[in-house]
Design a protein around this nucleic acid. Sequence first.
DNA 1: CAACAAACGGATAGCTCATCCGGATGTGCT
DNA 2: AGCACATCCGGATGAGCTATCCGTTTGTTG
Lengths: 187, 187
Amino acid sequence: MTPLRKDAARNFDRIVAVARELVDQGTPLQLNDVARRAGLGVGTVYRHFATTEALLETIATPCLETLTAHGHHALTADNPWHALRTFLERTVEAQVTDPAMVKVVASTTDALPHTTELKHQLQALGKALFARARDAGHVRTTVHDGDIVPLMCGIAYAVHLHGHPTHDRVTTAHRYLDTLLEGLHAS
Amino acid sequence: MTPLRKDAARNFDRIVAVARELVDQGTPLQLNDVARRAGLGVGTVYRHFATTEALLETIATPCLETLTAHGHHALTADNPWHALRTFLERTVEAQVTDPAMVKVVASTTDALPHTTELKHQLQALGKALFARARDAGHVRTTVHDGDIVPLMCGIAYAVHLHGHPTHDRVTTAHRYLDTLLEGLHAS
DNA sequence: CAACAAACGGATAGCTCATCCGGATGTGCT
DNA sequence: AGCACATCCGGATGAGCTATCCGTTTGTTG
């Protein structure tokens, strides 16, 4: 794949910057709108991102990468239960803090192959960390390993229903997660 | 308010029937679409239901009423913990079974006053049943009473992410709820 | 400084939502 | 029954958004 032309790269960055701003302030992402705000033609935006979702995924990628990196690291940690716990904490924090993460992690339609790969990794990490904690006898066996990621999304969703400012959301998310973990933990 | 004219009542029922069917089979609710399928003009539909949400709320009302009725009944039950538990079970079951319930209970925008009232009742019932269980010493005190309904919505949401058929969804929902309740329950 | 590929821009077609009002229809009164 | 009025119907229509297409402009390479 030949490198991008200079102007194309500049426009790409502009689009991402504008989109990041819009997402952060909760404005719904509309490609025509992004184009106008970035001072670009609609065609330009659509060439870089075939769909709103593709743009959203690009926005969320850095955060997703950080999260999966942490997950891989957690796999080698000493205490399996603690490793699972912090991984889940990071996961909900990310979703509650960044509106893009919620939509990307929850969405089933895949726009960008790279992001899809990351999502699968995240799912796999959830399963693996869970399995490790379970095999160490730290976890109730009624729960399935595939339940982990959906449950995190559920918590994030529940927090968003409250509609409070970011900081409160993190607190609430921790409270929800703590309750769930208490139920998860082998007594 | 004067009673509806005979034709108006008939059309109202047709619209509701068509909408119910669409919602049940997962088709997105679109008023123009409903009009076409009901063999009515668009204007007719819009006169009865100013917005998609209003129609959705009408669809969900019976289920909501059943749920709040059960909640009121549970308030007088012997065992506060058991009362809370079954109320929450009914709540998630309703949301997982009926697509309309999810959207209505979760939505913050209020279209119909009656439904809004019911939603507030549901919220209040969650709080009251929780408080009763807590005062009886059955519940960990880290959880807030306002967390109850959002958490139920979160579970319903998590279940829907799995995308499985109705019966499996109920099973999954129970598993999630059990885990959460385990964490809620005073040890 | 060509000459070519790559990228741009915005007019525009397609689609859904929601409104508006001339015409049709049910209802009550005589 | 027949009339008059309020109520209700229907669909043409405009506004708003998405996404495409292609003539024009710009960067790059030798």
